[in-house]
Design a protein around this nucleic acid. Structure first.
Length: 266
DNA sequence: AATTACGTCAACCGCGTACGA
DNA sequence: TTCGTACGCGGTTGACGTAAT
């Protein structure tokens, strides 16, 4: 079709920047023709979002950013755009590259070191589930999909999420002898009641409102005590999550908050 | 100095999804 | 409800630079 491929030249970059500054990018397909570029719209969009957009942060990732990626990857899997959304100035493509070139290796090294000490390390989810979609808990999922999450899976996630930050390089170490029930406490009916474990009626009232606010995000009844657990957890603010974030993050928080209910109750 | 191996990263490809006709 | 189009996402590729031999 006579369209150019391969690396962008400085002239092409300037054409694209100038056009978007003047007209925006409402229609990527039409943009290259209007801007005088011999590129497909897809290529233009990619060049803009991954390289030319003004708010993009260039340069190496610092330790904090890398740790954040590792933590988020543990929770979200290979959902690079979701991870990028929580790292300002970084693109999904860049994060994906950093993961494959640096961080995966870093975890692997740590894993081999740990194995020599008789410990096991949980694998990052991405490798066993490369699509990152099949067993994640996205908003809008069917209840049958939700029920497919086994307590074993959840226990693994619990240990990952809980222990992640405190370890060197944020690697999760799990003792193989660990009983599921130890890390994944059974909850009784009282967990679902409106009573808060603290017995503080003011808090109960506050979190009842909070639960109501959060409820639309969940496909199962959310008690004030669960909302209280969520609301008091430091992780809520750790990565600037908000209520609109995806279900999987909240699901992980619920696990940490008090364990999962029996699946039949979900 | 030449060659090979490896690491990095920008760009491409294919697929799934949202949305409008 | 179906179909076509546009877009976004994740996986993969390939060009380029650098280190090792």
């Amino acid at each position: 079709m006579g369209l150019k491929k391969g690396p962008w030249t400085a002239e092409e970059d300037q054409l694209l920047i100038a056009f978007i500054r003047q007209h925006g990018h409402g229609n990527w397909r039409a943009l290259p023709k209007q801007a005088g570029l011999l590129r497909c719209g897809k290529s233009c969009r990619l060049r803009w979002t991954n390289y030319l957009k003004p708010d993009i942060k260039r340069g190496n990732f610092n330790k904090e950013e890398e740790d954040t990626i590792i933590n988020l990857h543990e929770m979200l899997g290979n959902r690079w755009s979701a991870i990028a959304a929580r790292l300002s100035g970084r693109t999904d493509n860049e994060i994906k590259n950093v993961w494959h070139t640096h961080l995966k290796k870093r975890l692997k090294n740590y894993q081999s070191t740990s194995n020599t000490k008789g410990q096991t390390v949980t694998e990052p989810k991405c490798d066993s589930n490369s699509s990152g979609e099949s067993n994640t808990l996205n908003s809008g999922f069917e209840s049958s999909e939700y029920a497919s999450v086994s307590p074993q899976d959840s226990s693994s996630q619990l240990s990952s999420v809980t222990d992640l930050a405190g370890l060197p390089n944020n690697v999760v170490i799990k003792d193989e002898s660990m009983d599921t029930s130890e890390t994944f406490p059974q909850i009784d009916e009282s967990f679902w009641s409106e009573e808060l474990s603290t017995g503080n009626s003011t808090m109960q009232s506050d979190f009842a409102g909070f639960a109501e606010e959060l409820q639309f995000q969940f496909p199962f009844p959310l008690s004030p005590s669960m909302a209280a657990s969520i609301g008091t957890m430091e992780h809520v603010n750790e990565y600037n999550f908000n209520i609109d974030d995806d279900m999987e993050f909240w699901y992980n928080l619920l696990i940490k908050a008090g364990g999962l209910p029996e699946l039949s109750k979900i």
